[in-house]
Every structure is written in structure tokens, then in C-alpha cells.
Design a protein around this nucleic acid. Structure first.
Length: 762
DNA sequence: AGGTTAGTAATTTTT
DNA sequence: TTACTAACCT
């Protein structure tokens, strides 16, 4: 992941300027076969354009052709183009398809995810925002641990305010482009005993100390750079002459601001999206961004892609009828090519319980399979992950191969995260979160108490944990056993760091895992998953080998968390509706359409009508994944968390236009009337609405590990001869001072070296 | 310091 | 129901 060119934009050496064709021929080959609106979208290169692309309307084709077109016309050289996506997969596809269109790879253009591009910009100007260029990008787990530490220090009850909740609040602020200074006091007042805003500030402070940024920062810090240093912004503005944004309906405020700053002046920005497929508001996506586009970019052209190449008229009719129940849409009228017949109606099946639903779907799949239907053209799309289980069990029974898409990702596995933590500490000694993760893995006898001591020392001196350990080693604060263990560990670190220059990075990683005893830990482990973990570690080494250095690998790990998809294997796909966005299958099963599950009760609780509309969009996304067959189902009874619950058919079922569906209900459900209504008195999925905002009396302050030491960094407050008190050694008199380390003659414990932060004057 | 047990909570998750 | 965490015991 090197950066072959810098901001000043010299053409990549040895490469001819992207041969600008002498005016595009009237009918360039790549334009053949586009429909009128697609062609419109390709040729409207100047000024702001909103490409409203409905499901299955050939969006990617239009968008990649547009990019190729700009290059062919010579309107921009590759490095003057910026193409932003949400996923690495989408970025990769864009790159490949543009290359296909042009018949050669395009090099040097900025194509990638918001986060990857943000990271790239920040690394270049890191000092401007108080980071070193080698800053760490924290993952979700790191972030949560950090918040947890802050909550503990602030004495917030973690039962009431779980770290993930508080982290969520901080992230939503970041999504909105709000730094701690910009959040209004009132906003955090309900969260974490009113300390949310303060915690946010501390969180950011910690990140700086750790030389780290989280995902939100990858955009926020860009904004900060652009604001603080307008000349840098200007360079980028001049550089990027054509900007293209995919999945615009999923952008959050920070991303919107980022784009708007970059597009200023030039305004050749093309945003592609579909308001009806906005399903990530809970992650900060602002559907308003796409709805407001023509206000934000005056004179914008809106081009609608409405001709659907994917689904049958019945499927499209059902989906369109459903989504028509939403308000505040930009509105599109999807249509299909005529002449292919109408296809099958969308089937709607009501059954007794979840097990029967799984059995029914399984049987259907079996029939399709026996007719020669490819399994990888069949998907079961569920609302929530736990729903896949019943289908898995059924498919196993039937002997039908399947894969669960999504789920645990490679780099999130315990052993991989541990291994990476070792590498992180080596590359970036200030990375406390990584240090903490592996300081006692494998077990070195360093427990809670020792770690606490290290934390206090770090806090007192305002340094990283590694540095604090270094200081502590020169004192008598630690028990000899600990001092020995930590001393060895630090020696190891130092040695590995030295080897970074001489050893190949794969060899180094192997050395580290070997000498640290980490590999051995799993070799000795007798649990059934241990061999798999060792396999994964080997696998990681292979991945590591594909990078030039450790830094590149770590960047990849942070930013490219996607699963490899083996779409080639003939297997049924089980996945969530969210996971299915952007995919298509001949046959799609949509189980669990029940009130409370879909729409999900929590979505309604949290976001009311907006929540309902987003659930409806999710249903729309589900239906429009199907090319030829869609089958919706619901169960009258379902076991959730071991409890049987009865449920009514989803209101979405009633919203499907009768002309496009074919409903069959198992006799005996709901006293014989199917989907007859949604009586309000039913309270499904029990637990009340406002769990998130319950409060409790303030907790007594936890003995502050961090709070105490804020004042006195260094040994400056002490002088020789002074009488002091130490928690462990009692009273004594200072003999000499060496920086933050004091030599003290204790009355009971004898003469010891201790950290200044651990003693108080008496 | 590490293992055991009891209590609790439980969507969606492109980076 | 399961899975994870925090206090608790050894």
C-alpha cells in the first residue's frame, strides 16, 4: 500500500499521460448498449450530478463507464479522479471494471473507501493534527476497552452504561462531524450520568496519547486538517477534478462535509445512490444527504435509472408497492423490459412455528436443487443473525451445502488479534491497548494488581504503559517476580524492534510469536479449537507475506476487514438482509416476517416512524435481491431466547400488493384468518422501550487510578529531606531525587526507589 | 493469579 | 436458549 505519487502530482514516472483520445468518437464501443438514462449519466460529466439508481438498474455499469469516459475524453488524468465507496469490495470492483472497459489497468487514481482515503490523507499531514504518521487505527475492540477504562476511572456504573453504549454515543457524535468542543452540553446529559461529553473529551485525549485514531477520526481529522490548513485543502480541491461517490444514501454528516469541502470550486461531483435502500441510519447514515442533494449542490442534475434489468414484474411490483408506503422519498418508478412474461408471483407462506418454516424452506430448496437449480443462486435472507441457526440445522439434515455469509471475520479472531497486538507494540511502542492485550498472553504472572500499578505510573508521568514499565523497573515498586517478567518482556520488545531492520517482516513475525511463547501456548493447549488457531496463525503469515512491510500489513488489517467470498462453490447463502445489499440471486427466501422481529421491535422503539421506514426499506432491499423467485414467510409462534412467543404477520405483508403475491396460510393459524390485523394491545418481545435511558443513583467513586495523578507529573513537588507517605512502604524521608524517581529511607521498609507519583507529602 | 460459578442481557455492523 | 462478564473462591 505505498503511495506512488504525492500531492504535487507528477505523472507516475515512465508512464505516458493517459493518452487523451482526439475527441471521443460518436459511438465509442464502451457506450454501446447503455440505455438512455445510463448514457445520460455517463455523459453528464460536468457539474453536480445525482444518479438515482434503483435496485438492479445497472448502476455499476453506468458509474464505471462514466469514469472510463472521463479518462478517454482526456478530461482528467487518473490521479485527478477521486472515487469513493463504502466497501473495499466495491472499490475493487470499480477498479476492475474500469480497467476492463479501457482494456488496461488504471493506475494512480484515488479509489477506495472513505476510511482508507481518509487514512491516506491523514498520514500525509499527521503532524497537523498531533499525530505521528505511523499512528495506529483502532478497531472496535480497542475502542471499547478504552471506553471501559474511562468509565471505570470516572466511576460510572457499567451495568447502567455499558461501554458499548457509551462508545455508540461517541461514535454517533463523530458521525455527525462533532468534535467534543462542538457537542452541546445538553446532548450528553442523559448518558453516563451526564458525563458523556466529558468522557468523549477524555477519549480523544487518550487517542492522541496513544498516537491512535479510530474509524470516525479518519474523517474527522481530515476535516480538521482541511479547516486548519486551507492551503492543504486547496491542493486537494485542485487535484481532484472529478469526484464520484457510490452509495451516497449511506453517507453520514462527516462524510458529507468531507465531500463538500473537496468538491468546492470544481463541483464536478457525481453522487450515486438510492434513497429507498438507505438501511444504515443506526450507524449514522443520513438519508437527508441524498434527499437534499440539489439544495447542497445548486444546479445539480438528477438522473434517474429506473429500468430494471434484474427482477420479474411481479417481484418488482411487490417491492414497489411495499416501498410506496414510505414518505419522503425522492421517488422512482422502476419498470422492466416487457416480453419476458410476468414470472411467478411472490409467494407468502404462513406456518405454525420457526421449525416448520425452516422445514418448508428446506423442502423448497431441495425441490429447486433436484430440478437443477444452482444452490449458489439461492439465498435465505434474515433480519437478525440468530435466525440462521434453524435453517442451518435443517439444511444439514437435508444434506444441502450452505454457507453463512458474514459472521466472525478472520482478523477478529482471538489469536489473530493477539498476534497483531504483538506486531503493533513493536511498530508503535506507545500502543497501550495492544500492550495491555498481550502483556500477560501467554501468561507471565502479570495480573490485575501489577497492571494497575503500571497504569498509575503511566498516568503519573503522562507516558505510555511501555515507558512506565521502563521507569518502574528502576524502582522497588514491583515485586522481584514481576520486575523480572516485565524486564524480560521489554528486552524482547527491544530486541524485536532492532531486528525489524535486519529481518524480513515475515521472519520477524515468526520470531516474535515463537520467542514470546505465543505459538507454544496454543501448541500446549488441548482444547479442540487450538489446532485451528495455529492454522489461522499460519494463514496470517501467508497474508503478511503479501505485504512489503509490517506497516502496510497493519494498515490492511485495520481497513480491509472483509471476508473472502467463495461465490464459486455451489452452496445456499444464509445471511442478514443488511449483508445482502448489493447482491442478487435467482431465488430468495425471506423468512421471519413477523411483527416484532421484522419490523424489529427495537428499531421501532429507538426511532419510531423513521425506524419503521428503515425497516421497510430493508424489506425492499430483500425483495429486490431476487431475480426470479421470492418467497416471504412468517411463523405464528417463535422461540426467542428459549421463550415461546406468539407473533402476528408483519405489517409489511399486508402492504404487498395482492396482485403480485400468492398467499398460502397453514390452516388453523390465527383462528383461520391470515394476516387479519395488527391489534395494538399485543406487546411482543417483552422488554420495555426505554432501556437505553434508564438511570440510577450515582455510584460511589471508584478509587481513582487516573484521577489522582493528574496534578503531579515528575518529581518536581518533592525535595530531599522531605517526609512522605507511600501506600506500600509507609512513612519515610527522601534521600535523593532522580527525575520522577525518588530514593526514600522508609521507617519500616528500609531504603527503596519509588515513583514520585506514588508518594504524597505529609 | 487463575479457574469456577452466578447473573444478565440479547438487531442490523460496509470501515 | 446461549454467551459473556464479574465477582468469588482456592
Amino acid at each position: 500500500m505505498d503511495d506512488p505519487f504525492d500531492l504535487s502530482d507528477p505523472p507516475p514516472p515512465g508512464r505516458a499521460p493517459a493518452a487523451p483520445a482526439p475527441a471521443a468518437p460518436v459511438e465509442a464501443p464502451y457506450l454501446v448498449g447503455l440505455n438512455d438514462s445510463q448514457r445520460d449519466a455517463v455523459e453528464a460529466t460536468e457539474g453536480p450530478v445525482l444518479m438515482l439508481a434503483g435496485a438492479g438498474t445497472g448502476k455499476t455499469r453506468a458509474l464505471t463507464t462514466r469514469l472510463a469516459h472521463i479518462l478517454v475524453l482526456g478530461k482528467a488524468r487518473p490521479w485527478e479522479m477521486l472515487a469513493v465507496t463504502f466497501t473495499n469490495k466495491a472499490a475493487r470492483e470499480m477498479q476492475n471494471r474500469v480497467a476492463d472497459l479501457l482494456g488496461r489497468p488504471v493506475e494512480g487514481w484515488w479509489v477506495g473507501t472513505f476510511h482508507a482515503l481518509g487514512a491516506r490523507i491523514i498520514r500525509k499531514h499527521a503532524e497537523a493534527v498531533g499525530l505521528k504518521p505511523n499512528f495506529t487505527i483502532l478497531d472496535a475492540d480497542d475502542q471499547q476497552r478504552l471506553v471501559k477504562q474511562l468509565l471505570e476511572a470516572a466511576g460510572v456504573d457499567e451495568k447502567r452504561w455499558p461501554p458499548r453504549t457509551v462508545l455508540g454515543v461517541i461514535q454517533r457524535w463523530k458521525d455527525r462531524g462533532l468534535t467534543p468542543e462542538k457537542v452541546t452540553d445538553a446532548e450528553g446529559s442523559e448518558v453516563a450520568d451526564g458525563q458523556a461529553l466529558e468522557l468523549y473529551g477524555q477519549y480523544q485525549q487518550r487517542l492522541k496519547t496513544l498516537n491512535a485514531a479510530d474509524f470516525g477520526d479518519l474523517l474527522l481529522l481530515c476535516l480538521e486538517i482541511f479547516q486548519k490548513q486551507p492551503e492543504i485543502l486547496k491542493q486537494y480541491q485542485q487535484k481532484f477534478r472529478y469526484i464520484l461517490v457510490d452509495e451516497y444514501q449511506d453517507t453520514n454528516v462527516a462524510q458529507y462535509l468531507w465531500l463538500r469541502l473537496l468538491a468546492q470550486g470544481q463541483q464536478n461531483i457525481c453522487c450515486v445512490g438510492d434513497d429507498d435502500q438507505s438501511i444504515y441510519s443506526w450507524r449514522g447514515a443520513e438519508i437527508g444527504n441524498i434527499l437534499r442533494f440539489d439544495e447542497d449542490f445548486p444546479g445539480a442534475r438528477v438522473i434517474r435509472l429506473e429500468r430494471n434489468y434484474r427482477s420479474t414484474p411481479h417481484i418488482l411490483g411487490a417491492a414497489s408497492g411495499l416501498i410506496a408506503n414510505n414518505e419522503g422519498r425522492l421517488g422512482k418508478t422502476l419498470f422492466t423490459e416487457e416480453g419476458n412474461g410476468e414470472g411467478e408471483r411472490v409467494r407468502v407462506i404462513g406456518v405454525w412455528d420457526g421449525e416448520e418454516e425452516a422445514r418448508t424452506v428446506g423442502d423448497e430448496i431441495e425441490v429447486l436443487h433436484s430440478k437443477g437449480h444452482a444452490l449458489n443462486q439461492i439465498a435465505v435472507l434474515v433480519r437478525a443473525g440468530f435466525q440462521t441457526r434453524e435453517f442451518e440445522e435443517r439444511l444439514i439434515t437435508l444434506g444441502i451445502p450452505y454457507r453463512v455469509v458474514g459472521g466472525a471475520r478472520f482478523y477478529e479472531r482471538l489469536e489473530i488479534r493477539d498476534a497483531i497486538a504483538y506486531l503493533r507494540v513493536i511498530v508503535q511502542p506507545d500502543d497501550d491497548l495492544a500492550f495491555e492485550r498481550i502483556v500477560n498472553v501467554p501468561s507471565r504472572g502479570i495480573g490485575k494488581v501489577t497492571l494497575q500499578t503500571i497504569h498509575m505510573a503511566a498516568r503519573a508521568e503522562g507516558v505510555s504503559l511501555t515507558a512506565a514499565v521502563r521507569s518502574l523497573l528502576e524502582t522497588d515498586e514491583l515485586k522481584p517476580k514481576m520486575r523480572n517478567a516485565l524486564g524480560n518482556l521489554l528486552e524482547d520488545f527491544d530486541r524485536w524492534r532492532r531486528q525489524m531492520d535486519v529481518l524480513d517482516h515475515v521472519d520477524l513475525a515468526e520470531t516474535v510469536l515463537d520467542e514470546s511463547g505465543y505459538t507454544e501456548k496454543w501448541q500446549r493447549d488441548k482444547s479442540p479449537e487450538a489446532p485451528g488457531r495455529l492454522e489461522n496463525l499460519k494463514e496470517m503469515m501467508v497474508a503478511l507475506g503479501e505485504f512489503e512491510n509490517l506497516g502496510g500489513f497493519l494498515e490492511h488489517v485495520s481497513l480491509v476487514m472483509d471476508n473472502e467470498d467463495n461465490t464459486n462453490d455451489d452452496m445456499v447463502s444464509l445471511m442478514t438482509l443488511h449483508g445482502a445489499k448489493g447482491l442478487e440471486f435467482d431465488t430468495v427466501f425471506l423468512p421471519g416476517w413477523e411483527e416484532g422481529l421484522f419490523p424489529h421491535q427495537l428499531a421501532l422503539d429507538d426511532a419510531g416512524l423513521n425506524g419503521l421506514e428503515e425497516e421497510r426499506r430493508l424489506a425492499y432491499v430483500g425483495l429486490t435481491r431476487a431475480r426470479r423467485r421470492a418467497c416471504v414467510s412468517y411463523a405464528a409462534n417463535r422461540r426467542i431466547y428459549g421463550q415461546w412467543q406468539s407473533a402476528l404477520p408483519s405489517r409489511f405483508i399486508n402492504e404487498l400488493p395482492p396482485d403480485h403475491i400468492d398467499a398460502s396460510v397453514q390452516p388453523g393459524l390465527y383462528g383461520g384468518t391470515a394476516g387479519s390485523g395488527l391489534e395494538e394491545e399485543q406487546a411482543y418481545f417483552g422488554n420495555g422501550a426505554s432501556r437505553a435511558f434508564k438511570r440510577r443513583r450515582a455510584q460511589p467513586m471508584i478509587e481513582a487510578t487516573w484521577r489522582t495523578a493528574d496534578s503531579g507529573a515528575g518529581g518536581g513537588d518533592f525535595s530531599p529531606g522531605q517526609r512522605v507517605f507511600h501506600q506500600k512502604f509507609g512513612y519515610g524521608r527522601i534521600k535523593s531525587i532522580d527525575g520522577s524517581k525518588l530514593e526514600i529511607a522508609f521507617e519500616k521498609a528500609g531504603t527503596k526507589k519509588v515513583m514520585a507519583g506514588f508518594v504524597e507529602a505529609v
